[in-house]
Design a binder for these strands. Structure first.
Lengths: 233, 233
DNA sequence: TGCTATAAGATTGTATGCAAAAATCAACAA
DNA sequence: TTGTTGATTTTTGCATACAATCTTATAGCA
């Protein structure tokens, strides 16, 4: 029996490992730049190298790991240049998700997003940053879900995962936070009006500001050890 | 020595296999729906199952193969619903590539694209479909390259690869072909003017028409055996 | 001291073996 | 004929073994 899950779900080991390693990266257990020694991980997880290596190849293909032939895997790191490269693509995808979401959004889905929005607004007024991030991320997930396009979801999440490699606790200025909140007000309005063009425009702008926040976090945090990755907004 | 390449390039076997299998899928050597028997492929390629399986996992993650636990891999097939799901995402990415390309395009790059454009126009007037497709694809590659965003390139090509699973020889009507050619005229004009908004709009529209062509090809070609995948335009 | 060269050790890449699951097929009954 | 059961074969999933490559530590030399 492997030590990963007590009640083995209907999945293969390598597949489970992909998820497990992803979590280890996002949680900070494996930090950017760390080498990923196969044998050590195998001992730790109680498995053999074969399924682990299959998982490493997949994560390498996703851009979360850097695979150096004959020299093992490293957790990928993110430069400011990488951010500038990834964010425009995410922006295009998120804009699309806004358009599709507006076209398909049910009243029930909108109601849920609105509820989350006000919950988030409350966290904003109370200056509860962590809670704000959590709900914020949930809202974006809801919009993406509402777009009802699994391919879009996969592609977007792949990029969002790479961004999460920049695991520096977000430190939004009050000014930027207020701005983000205003943008979310616009989003809600656009969603209610089912105005896809408007929503995609707001989302693009929103992401543009987010990019600066992330870049600044990278600049300030370079070299330091940190906790789990957080959402930026 | 493995039988894949005479002069082993500086790469690992599994990586080479990813490319090799991709080619086999695109060339039609492995057709959509085919099972991919590990042992048989290993014998054929003169390798063992371990690196092959690593490659299969990667291609599964890319969506070119469908991995069924304990039941092996199948070459993925493409339904019309899949097309409708993938094309909007490609559209968003191609629109972005147009905007970025306009922002960065050098005069030399534009000159090359213009040359290709006129070459393609010649193939169009002569009704040389295959040549038209080839040059057409080259033009789109040039625009993508000009965008100078590797992440965008990777994501776009991943989707383009999945579309190529619909390996039916394109059968454009003359009407649609003429329309595509007019769209390319608009593209060239937008590129020359470095009008990113305009180019991204034309590219989106262009892709929308392409979607219909591909869907029609799927409808007409279902079940038949075909040659290598072709570009659609 | 600082550099190169070389050899030992560690790590990765690939092949093989074995157990478990699925697919196939044959016998049989309805 | 059709459908069901069970044994046999095939195929996959994982573990292990061996080979190739890289890393490092050390010795020799200028």
């Amino acid at each position: 029996m492997n030590q990963i899950s007590e009640f083995a779900p209907r999945t293969t080991l390598h597949e489970e490992l992909v998820g497990r390693l992803r979590d280890m990266i996002f949680s900070g257990e494996l930090k950017g730049g760390d080498r990923v020694p196969e044998q050590k991980l195998c001992d730790m997880l109680g498995i053999s190298r074969t399924p682990l290596r299959e998982a490493l190849k997949v994560l390498g293909n996703e851009g979360l790991l850097e695979l150096l032939p004959n020299r093992g895997a490293r957790v990928a790191t993110l430069s400011e240049a990488d951010i500038d490269e990834i964010f425009p693509v995410m922006g295009a995808l998120e804009a699309l998700s806004g358009e599709l979401a507006c076209a398909r959004l049910t009243d029930a889905e909108f109601a849920e997003i609105r509820a989350l929005h006000y919950q988030m607004a409350l966290h904003h007024t109370r200056r509860e940053l962590a809670d704000y991030f959590r709900v914020n991320q949930h809202i974006h997930e809801c919009i993406l879900k509402a777009a009802a396009n699994p391919t879009l979801e996969v592609q977007y999440n792949a990029l969002a995962g790479r961004i999460r490699l920049a695991r520096f606790r977000a430190n939004m200025t009050d000014k930027r936070w207020d701005q983000a909140m205003r943008e979310h007000e616009e989003m809600l309005a656009a969603l209610e009006a089912r105005d896809g063009k408007k929503l995609s425009e707001v989302l693009s702008r929103h992401l543009e500001n987010k990019r600066e926040t992330v870049k600044q976090a990278i600049r300030e945090g370079t070299g330091e050890a940190h906790g789990p990755a957080v959402a930026y907004d």
